[in-house]
Simulated assay, not measured.
Amino acid sequence: MLPRRRLPASCLPALLLALASRPAAAGEPQRYVLDPVHTRVMFAIDHAGFSKAIGTVSGSEGSLHFDVDDWSSARLDVVVPMTRLDLGDSGWTASVFAPRFLDVKRYPQARFVATDGMQRGTGNRGRACGQLTLHGVTRPLCLDVVFNKAGRYPLPPFRRTIGFSATATLKRSDYGMTSWQSLVGDDIDLRIEAELFRSDADAPAPTQPAPAAGDPAPPPND
């Protein structure tokens, strides 16, 4: 019997990196975690008919179980910190934080959960339907999804990464926000850009993110 040859220690880091970045076997959903730096929610809403007010929300957390070849197995759970909403002006942002609108003191998070997979359409397009909880109200919502790319990120730590773009429209009145209807539109257009990296270990569930330094504090009263 020939003696077994040991792998030189200098080769181990390269081997581990190759294993970590290797695509998953077909038919096996992998767990991906949102990259909060490269994930952003953008929204647009009518402002007295003059323009569309545009804001963004950063710092979302969550996970996606996803198989590139079988979208029907997808499971998504995302928490969006409404305290990180930004309209580009501290006073305007604070007015949206107030009880008459988002009431972020009582409802600091929104959450979207989709457990029944994604419906794949033509090419890289599909749909993810689930439940959105916003302002303390939970209602069904469907996202039109574009699967942009899957691959190894080109910079250290070279993690397996996937990226999506998504759009949806909802009515704020469906979530109990009915103030200032003559000034602020009811329809909210959403655009989401998301990157996720593969997580081989179970990560902790999303937690309520603290407001970033410099973010306006929610007003105590309307």
Rank of each mutant, 00 (worst) to 15 (best):
H135Y: 14
F66L: 01
Q119S: 15
G59W: 00
L64T: 02
D189S: 13
R172E: 02
G88C: 02
S179E: 11
P220W: 06
G88Y: 01
G55T: 00
L141H: 10
G126I: 02
L190Q: 03
L2Q: 12
R84I: 04
D70L: 14
A53P: 00
S10F: 12
R191L: 12
G91Y: 10
G123A: 15
D116C: 09
D189Q: 09
R120M: 08
L64Y: 03
S199A: 15
G59H: 00
S173V: 07
V57I: 13
I188A: 09
A48F: 15
T122C: 14
F101P: 01
D77K: 06
G59K: 00
V33R: 13
R5G: 06
T161R: 08
L190N: 08
E28H: 12
G62S: 07
R172D: 07
R139P: 02
G214L: 02
R198G: 07
L76P: 01
P219K: 06
D144N: 14
R159S: 11
P8G: 09
E28R: 11
T83H: 10
A168T: 01
A53H: 05
K149Q: 14
P8D: 07
L134P: 01
D77N: 11
V104I: 11
A114H: 02
R5I: 14
E195V: 06
F66S: 02
T178S: 15
P156C: 11
N124I: 11
D189H: 10
V80E: 00
D186I: 04
A74W: 00
G163M: 03
H135K: 13
P23A: 04
T178H: 06
R40S: 06
L2A: 13
F101Q: 07
Y175C: 04
S58Q: 10
E28I: 12
R120K: 09
D187C: 13
G214P: 05
S95G: 15
L17D: 05
I54E: 10
Y107P: 01
F97P: 01
A205G: 09
L87W: 00
P29Q: 08
L134K: 04
R125N: 13
W92F: 14
F66E: 00
Q109Y: 09
G126A: 06
G163A: 10
G59R: 00
S21H: 07
R4W: 09
S51C: 10
A166F: 05
A24I: 05
D103V: 05
P216Y: 01
D116V: 06
D187G: 09
G55N: 02
R100Y: 05
V145K: 02
F197G: 04
V145C: 03
Q30P: 02
D186T: 03
S21P: 05
A194K: 02
L16T: 12
A53L: 10
R75C: 11
V113M: 08
I192C: 02
A205I: 14
A150E: 14
A203I: 07
F97K: 03
T161Q: 09
D77I: 03
C142Q: 06
L190H: 03
A14G: 12
T39G: 08
A128P: 03
P23D: 10
S58A: 15
R31Y: 15
S58W: 04
G163K: 03
V37K: 14
R127K: 12
G49V: 05
S90E: 15
